[in-house]
């Protein structure tokens, strides 16, 4: 039963609204103040958010921010309700990353349709990684193309978790999944703090991530990602293995080998100066850089410094 958080006192003004939605199986939770609304996202996130412009003072910004930060559900659709007067002058879409609008006073038929449309649209996005909910391959290739076309110099970064396969074998897939989620969150939160505006984060699958940030922020971002990973990594490893600095598992050939603890390798490919024409070229260079950086012990990142692109 889909749960809808209705943030605002006027949205369900017409009694037919509530009746028809509930008869279709929607569970409606009405909040008129910010504490309860935010608390709900923390405790038990809804499946859809409808929020009024001017909710709880300027609360809609905070509430929408929380809804977007909710990694545990795939992109909760957000509908903003506003009056015609409030539409004048435009809206700051960066601060209000909503999926749809609804005009006040809310007509029950339109409310129903917009909710169903939001759900249908959300279901069309098949690209997201089921574990991390981050965008997948198609979105990543698009994002890289956009970065190549951008006027500002960007950097495309490929993240890889070293020793992940033996870790998975040794600790089990469930814990392996936890590590993937952990890395996802570390990357998302660092970029959110340092370079939110023009960045992109994707999850290729398994233990591979791609993120894109402006080139002038890339060193700071990489340093922080490595530092934060370092700070939480040991929580995911048995104390004895931490002490030993590694663990014993079978390698790809089936031989017992000693593997080091988990670490992160990042291949950084600056894409400014029209060096690359399309994403395939970026991926090719990344492959070479990845090879080099993974050969280094521990957490590392390596920035590609070549001048032009030449297919080797």
């Amino acid at each position: 039963m889909p749960r809808i958080l209705v943030a605002g006192a006027h949205i369900l003004e017409r009694p037919e609204s509530r009746i028809s939605l509930e008869s279709k199986g929607y569970q409606l939770i009405v909040c008129t103040e910010i504490k309860g609304a935010v608390g709900l996202f923390l405790e038990d996130p809804p499946d859809l958010l409808i929020v009024e412009r001017g909710f709880a003072g300027n609360g809609e910004y905070d509430l929408i921010g929380v809804a977007n930060a909710c990694l545990q559900k795939t992109n909760i659709p957000i509908i903003l309700v506003l009056s015609r007067e409030e539409m004048v002058g435009g809206l700051d879409w960066k601060r209000l990353p909503v999926d749809d609008l609804l005009e006040r006073p809310v007509a029950p038929e339109e409310l129903m349709l917009r909710i169903q449309l939001a759900e249908a649209r959300r279901n069309r996005v098949f690209d997201n990684n089921p574990l991390s909910k981050l965008p997948g391959n198609t979105s990543i290739l698009n994002a890289i193309q956009n970065a190549l076309a951008a006027s500002e110099p960007m950097a495309v970064c490929y993240v890889d978790i070293d020793n992940f396969k033996p870790y998975n074998d040794h600790y089990g897939f469930s814990q392996g999944d936890e590590v993937i989620l952990m890395v996802a969150r570390v990357i998302v939160n660092v970029i959110d703090q340092i370079a939110r505006q023009q960045s992109f984060i994707g999850h290729v699958g398994g233990d591979d991530f791609v993120f894109i940030v402006p080139e002038d922020k890339v060193v700071e971002v990489c340093d922080k990602v490595l530092a934060n990973f370092e700070a939480v990594r040991n929580l995911f490893i048995e104390p004895e293995d931490v002490k030993r600095g590694g663990f014993v598992e079978k390698d790809r050939q089936g031989r017992e080998t000693r593997f080091g603890l988990l670490s992160i390798s990042i291949a950084v490919i600056p894409t400014g100066d029209g060096k690359f024409q399309h994403s395939g070229q970026v991926a090719a260079v990344a492959s070479q850089v990845k090879h080099k950086v993974k050969a280094l012990d521990g957490n590392n990142y390596l920035i590609d410094r070549r001048e032009g692109y030449s297919p080797d």
């Binding site: 923390l42 939160n189 703090q193 929580l235």
Partner: peptide, 28 residues
């Protein structure tokens, strides 16, 4: 969040939850 019974320090919790979630905690 996917890390049941795993996170035992506040600094780690902060790293994994991120600014927006911490802010939400304060609001609520």
């Amino acid at each position: 969040y996917g890390f049941p019974q795993r996170i035992s320090s506040i600094s780690s919790a902060i790293i994994l939850l991120g600014f927006n979630v911490v802010k939400s905690l304060i609001i609520s």
